[in-house]
Amino acid sequence: MNQQNEHNSPESEKWELRLYVAGQTPKSVRAFANLKKLCEEYLPTQYQIEVIDLLHNPELAKQDQILAIPTLVRKLPIPIRQIIGDLSNQEKVLLGLEIAKIGE
């Protein structure tokens, strides 16, 4: 299965992640820290995190259908995935980003 293959060989892919926050709230800070840690661990070289502060750019909330803060959006690889919350449960995040199998 094609998708399975992709997941099994993430090295070849580029991961583009976006974290939507609204100011420096504790939840946002926590989310960013959790994300950073996770990426370093599982996608050491191929990830890119873009933090968007909606307080400064409220118009950007529309494009990724942001409702909750913080929201992590996986832009690449497709399909787009959304994870909301402070990303404190690493297993869930891995599941949500579909990188659970990498650790195996």
Binding site: Y20, A22, K27, R30, A31, N34, L54, A61, I66, L67, A68, I69, P70, T71, P79, I80, R81, Q82, I83, I84, G85, D86, L87, S88, N89, K92, V93, L95, G96
Partner: peptide, 12 residues
Amino acid sequence: EIQETGEYDLEG
């Protein structure tokens, strides 16, 4: 398409 993990609010 949405996975929830941890605390969040609906500030968006």
